[in-house]
Amino acid sequence: LQAFIKTLTGKTFTVEMEPSDTIENLKAKIQDKEGIPPDQQRLIFAGKQLEDGRTLSDYNIQKESTLHLVL
């Protein structure tokens, strides 16, 4: 599935991932794409901060969901 990552500066980019991917995997993909170390990334979806060990499906993240990236 493709999801949108929106930063506080208003920049939006897309990442490809599977519902079974962990938040940790997602942070690694963001690092590959944007060069931001995972330990500096905080991802917010539906008002909740996402925990590394959980999966996208745990948070009911669907295709074309928008996640907010806070540094």
Rank of each mutant, 00 (worst) to 15 (best):
L1Y: 09
L1V: 11
L1W: 09
Q2D: 05
Q2L: 15
Q2N: 11
Q2F: 11
Q2H: 12
A3D: 03
A3G: 05
F4N: 10
I5E: 02
I5K: 00
K6I: 15
K6C: 11
K6R: 11
T7Q: 06
T7E: 03
T7M: 15
L8N: 14
L8I: 14
T9G: 13
T9V: 07
G10Q: 03
G10N: 04
K11T: 08
T12P: 04
T12L: 10
T12I: 13
F13I: 11
F13A: 01
T14S: 10
T14K: 08
V15T: 02
V15C: 03
V15M: 06
E16W: 14
E16P: 10
M17N: 02
M17Q: 02
M17H: 04
M17K: 00
M17D: 00
M17S: 04
E18K: 13
E18W: 13
E18Q: 13
D21E: 08
D21L: 05
T22C: 03
T22E: 02
I23V: 13
I23Q: 01
E24Y: 13
E24K: 13
E24G: 14
N25H: 13
N25D: 13
N25K: 15
L26S: 00
L26E: 00
L26W: 00
K27G: 00
K27T: 01
K27F: 02
K27W: 02
A28V: 12
A28R: 14
A28G: 08
K29D: 01
K29P: 01
I30V: 04
Q31R: 12
Q31W: 15
D32G: 08
D32S: 11
K33H: 12
K33S: 09
K33A: 11
E34T: 15
E34Q: 11
E34F: 14
E34M: 15
E34V: 15
E34D: 04
E34A: 13
E34L: 15
G35Q: 05
G35F: 04
G35V: 02
I36P: 03
I36A: 03
P37A: 09
P37T: 05
P37K: 06
P37F: 04
P38W: 10
P38F: 13
D39Q: 09
D39M: 10
D39A: 12
D39R: 10
D39P: 06
D39I: 08
D39V: 09
Q40R: 11
Q40L: 10
Q40G: 05
Q41A: 04
Q41Y: 12
Q41K: 00
R42E: 09
L43R: 00
L43C: 01
I44E: 09
I44K: 05
I44V: 09
F45T: 03
F45S: 04
F45V: 05
F45C: 04
F45H: 10
F45I: 06
G47K: 03
G47V: 02
G47E: 05
G47W: 03
G47Q: 03
G47T: 03
G47P: 01
K48Y: 08
K48T: 13
Q49F: 13
Q49D: 13
Q49M: 14
L50M: 10
L50Y: 01
L50T: 03
L50C: 02
D52I: 05
G53V: 06
G53H: 14
R54S: 07
R54G: 06
T55N: 06
T55C: 05
T55W: 04
L56K: 01
L56I: 12
S57I: 09
S57T: 08
S57C: 04
S57D: 09
S57K: 11
D58W: 11
D58A: 04
Y59G: 02
Y59M: 04
Y59R: 01
Y59Q: 03
N60I: 09
N60A: 08
N60H: 09
N60E: 07
N60D: 09
I61Q: 04
I61D: 04
I61S: 04
Q62H: 10
Q62I: 12
Q62D: 13
K63S: 15
K63P: 15
E64F: 13
E64L: 11
E64I: 06
E64K: 11
E64T: 10
S65F: 13
S65L: 09
S65W: 05
T66N: 05
H68N: 08
L69I: 12
L69D: 00
L69V: 06
L69R: 00
L69A: 01
V70A: 07
V70Y: 13
V70L: 14
L71C: 07
